[in-house]
Design a binder for these strands. Sequence first.
DNA 1: CGAACAGTTGAGGCGCGTCAAACTTGGTGG
DNA 2: CCACCAAGTTTGACGCGCCTCAACTGTTCG
Lengths: 243, 243
Amino acid sequence: MTNSCLIAKLGRFTELSEADKRLLAILEEDEREYRKDQIVRRAGRPVEYLFVVKSGWLTSFSMLEDGRRQLLRIFYPGDIVDLSEIALHQAQHDIKCVTAAVLCPFPKAGLEPLFSQSPRLTALLFSMTVKENAALLDRIRAIGRLSAYERLCYLLLEISSRLRLTVNGIEDGFRLPLTQSDIADLLGLTNVYVSKTMSRIERDRLIQRQGNRVQILDLKRMRDVCEYSENATIDTSWFPLGD
Amino acid sequence: MTNSCLIAKLGRFTELSEADKRLLAILEEDEREYRKDQIVRRAGRPVEYLFVVKSGWLTSFSMLEDGRRQLLRIFYPGDIVDLSEIALHQAQHDIKCVTAAVLCPFPKAGLEPLFSQSPRLTALLFSMTVKENAALLDRIRAIGRLSAYERLCYLLLEISSRLRLTVNGIEDGFRLPLTQSDIADLLGLTNVYVSKTMSRIERDRLIQRQGNRVQILDLKRMRDVCEYSENATIDTSWFPLGD
DNA sequence: CGAACAGTTGAGGCGCGTCAAACTTGGTGG
DNA sequence: CCACCAAGTTTGACGCGCCTCAACTGTTCG
């Protein structure tokens, strides 16, 4: 319980009571290791288990018959995979590991005590979903209306902002385990054009790369390029009181 | 309460107790009329009120400094505008009326009794948010990886599927109050190309148009074109029991 | 009747895709 | 510790889908 990823992430947004922490810790009792590229769940299968991400990056994606692929979401440590499918009978998307990962599976019904015993945790989970929602809207804006150059700046900002929730000190850069094909499929581009555009961004001294490490050199200019402002905090004023 | 839009929509997914219905009806006590094109809320403003849509279509959108615009969401009768902003301090997007509309404003805190008194309604609202989330993922796939022709087929299917939730008998077509510029801004295209592509879709006898009414002629082929399958039902098996 | 707005149509251009061939990197086994 | 291979990245030539600009055609409503 002391090293629960969920508690670590959720605790950033609001004070958690001991009871709440216990409810969350139950979700991480089990633990399973996954290899890089391993499929965690296939689209069309019933959603029986959800997973807390303990370590590693995962992604959900959608394939078209002719091979086109769209990456939909990245899951980081502290996320619940896939909270968004809980309301559906069948999984809509494939989910696979971008890196080796450790996941904590729990049955869908495992959320029930949380909903019935802690209105405050419920509101928090609700807020997390809503926040994710806001992130999806940002991506729609990016894919729909930004140029490739702008989209890449946006993605790097989004990733670094998300990493800041669970990782400390990324000012000197962070490891980016996504391939350029992954990045292309996240943003509606091709790997070739991602490569060319990343080089331009680096030449413009907005970022610096070595291997798969990326460092953002000029945060302000990056933000201006894609008109992206992250808002990390959530409004907890409407939350029911803790018990 | 008898003509509550919320109850009408939510009741399609699960049985509502009388107590639940009362909780929902409170949200629609107030009522206000809006003109076509009227701004309901500006980005950057604090989110104090949410709205139940009683009639009309609204949209949320994001503007870039140079005038580019991305429509993010369409709100139909029975929706809550903008449930997704509840977790944030400031509104992220502008919201305006596509048609004349009647909205029921209620303060953000108005949801509190619902969260604290009815775990079942909470789970339902949560599911609605999650379902909306799934719809956003579909749009990301469409904008990121589908051609203009495929995107338009997708959008028409999505709209007709959403309308089926509150309107009966759209088999003989439905009114589409969006301009082609709106449609373009929803899908990351331009009004000119939407016009040309819509004509192609009509020439291919997938749809038929007159004025702003649209009728889908060949549902199966439409679905095949964009590989889109709607899933209307939600899984309520994990819901806490009603009181 | 005319202004304002939405839709249509055509000509030409550009951003990003496609294809293909080098080059770099990191992991693996001898 | 080096040699090797597979996977990922880079680079260049060329093409296409969608954009831009612009003129024209309804259509609605004072």
